[in-house]
Each structure stands twice: as structure tokens, then as C-alpha cells.
């Protein structure tokens, strides 16, 4: 994979920068250039999400593609951010810790790498929100 594809999403992946439509108030992550509701009437601005949210559903992946093969088993979830948008991400926890409705917070992790000599790409995963981490 050529570097630009990973580089261009660095702000989005590191800090959950999405978009907001000022016309309808819709919030979007990942960022969208067009509001799916207002389309050309939408006025899109940048919007950073806090990264705290709740697990809507999850799975534990035991059979992964080559890029994730060495990390199995890992927990993958759909997280509903406190601000509203939903996204897919890994939960850094034991498989039996994961629960629907579990509160999570963002953590900064390696998402993958382009082989041992290629670029490393970083971004946001999630961890259970504990009292200490609040």
C-alpha cells in the first residue's frame, strides 16, 4: 500500500475528527464531504468526537486476514459515541470482558503495519471505561 492512503487519514484516525452538518445538525464519523440528509444544502464543518461511548454489539475474531492473524483472538465492536455516531473499532479487553452496553474510552494503538519494513499506522481503539480512567 502506498503511504498517502494511510497518511491522509492520520488526523481522523488519531483524534476521531469527523464532520458536522450545520444545516441539520447531523454528526458524522468518518468525515463526509456531503451531508447524507441535506446533500447539497448541507454545510459541513469539522467536528472532533470525545471518543467515549458504548458498545452496541461486538464479536471476538478468531480467524483474521493475514494483517491481523497474529493478534487473534481480538474483540471487535460497533461503538456508539456519546455524541451519536456509530463506528467500528477494536476493544482492548479480554473476550469475556466485552458486553453489550459496556462504556468505553478511546486509546491510542497500532492499527497495523505494512509488513515489518513498511509504514506503521496508528489510530483509535477503545478500552473499558473504569473508574480510574474517568
Amino acid at each position: 500500500m502506498a503511504v498517502p492512503r494511510l497518511w491522509r487519514h492520520i488526523p481522523t484516525r488519531y483524534n476521531l475528527i469527523g464532520t458536522e452538518c450545520q444545516t441539520c445538525g447531523g454528526l458524522y464519523f468518518p468525515p463526509r464531504t456531503t451531508c447524507p440528509t441535506c446533500r447539497r444544502d448541507g454545510r459541513i464543518i469539522e467536528r472532533k468526537f470525545k471518543g467515549t461511548g458504548e458498545v452496541v454489539t461486538y464479536t471476538t475474531i478468531y480467524s483474521a486476514s493475514a494483517a491481523f492473524h497474529r493478534q487473534t483472538p481480538y474483540v471487535l465492536a460497533i461503538v456508539k459515541l456519546d455524541e451519536g455516531p456509530l463506528l467500528t473499532g477494536q476493544i482492548v479487553c479480554d473476550p469475556d470482558e466485552a458486553k453489550i452496553g459496556m462504556k468505553v474510552r478511546p486509546v491510542f494503538r497500532k492499527l497495523g503495519e505494512d509488513g515489518p519494513s513498511g509504514i506503521i499506522y496508528y489510530g483509535t481503539k477503545f478500552a473499558p471505561l473504569t473508574e480510574a480512567s474517568q
Binding site: H9, P30, V56, T57, Y58, T59, I61, S63, A64, S65, F68, Q71, Y74, L76, A77, I78, L87, T88, G89, Q90, I100, L111, G112, Y121, G123
Partner: peptide
């Protein structure tokens, strides 16, 4: 970009449908 790069596999996505 927003599922695959996060480690989503095809069975994984359907597993999340199943769980819910």
C-alpha cells in the same frame, strides 16, 4: 477504510449482527 483497517472480517461483521 473504516471496517477492514480496524480488523473487521466478513464473518466478524455478521457475528455482530448475530450478537445483537
Amino acid at each position: 477504510e473504516w471496517e477492514g483497517f480496524m480488523g473487521a472480517t466478513f464473518p466478524g461483521l455478521y457475528a455482530m449482527i448475530a450478537r445483537l
